[in-house]
């Protein structure tokens, strides 16, 4: 982790509820306005469905549901951040829902601290570090881990038996 933080990196910041999150810009392909998402039946709620990205079927995930927050509702600011995720050695294109997209910032490695052990709502596995800017904290996500097949699979496993969800 240290070597990746020895230099200035660009991040895209976005908001989930009131908190500011960020991901390395190199993994971001584009940002789309929220459009109709086709729900794939029998999948977890946070897997919002699929969209058509110029002929490509791209899955869209609700980051807030994934992090245990409320479902992302559609507003004028709702965006789909299209990211490239490394999944089992394969690059996959996935859309992530965000309440709003903020800006592209540069953060010096020295301004990034390791993730805190306590005090965040989400699993620290998903956090690459805490960035500091204008005395505010930015949660830098490890997008690969958020979307890793293993983690998605864990949730899918509970879906195999429908009544487990119902109970």
């Amino acid at each position: 982790m240290d070597e990746s933080m020895t230099e200035t990196t660009q991040y895209l910041t976005f908001k989930l509820e009131d908190e500011v999150y960020a991901t390395t810009i190199s993994q971001v392909r584009e940002v789309l306005e929220y459009s109709k998402v086709t729900k794939v039946p029998r999948t977890p709620d946070y897997m919002r469905g699929v969209i058509n990205l110029r002929g490509r079927v791209v899955p869209v995930l609700d980051l807030k549901l994934r992090f245990g927050m409320n479902r992302t509702e559609q507003t004028v600011n709702t965006c789909v951040i299209i990211v490239e995720v490394d999944m089992d050695g394969e690059t996959m294109i996935i859309g992530a829902l965000a309440d709003s997209v903020q800006e592209v910032i540069e953060l010096d490695a020295s301004l990034i601290e390791p993730p805190p052990k306590i005090g965040t709502k989400l699993n620290t596995d998903f956090i690459r570090g805490m960035g500091k800017r204008d005395d505010k904290f930015i949660i830098i996500l490890d997008i690969d881990r958020v979307f890793s097949a293993e983690n998605l699979g864990a949730v899918r496993a509970t879906m195999a038996e429908p009544e487990t969800v119902a109970e």
């Binding site: 459009s35 086709t38 794939v40 039946p41 999948t43 699929v50 002929g55 899955p59």
Partner: peptide
């Protein structure tokens, strides 16, 4: 069109298609 790896375990769906209005 394939709906991709993240949905590979979904039973009963073999793929998706883009409709005239761009929806799936």
């Amino acid at each position: 069109k394939s709906i991709g790896k993240s949905y590979k375990d979904v039973k009963g769906i073999s793929g998706a298609t883009v409709l005239g209005d761009g929806a799936l």
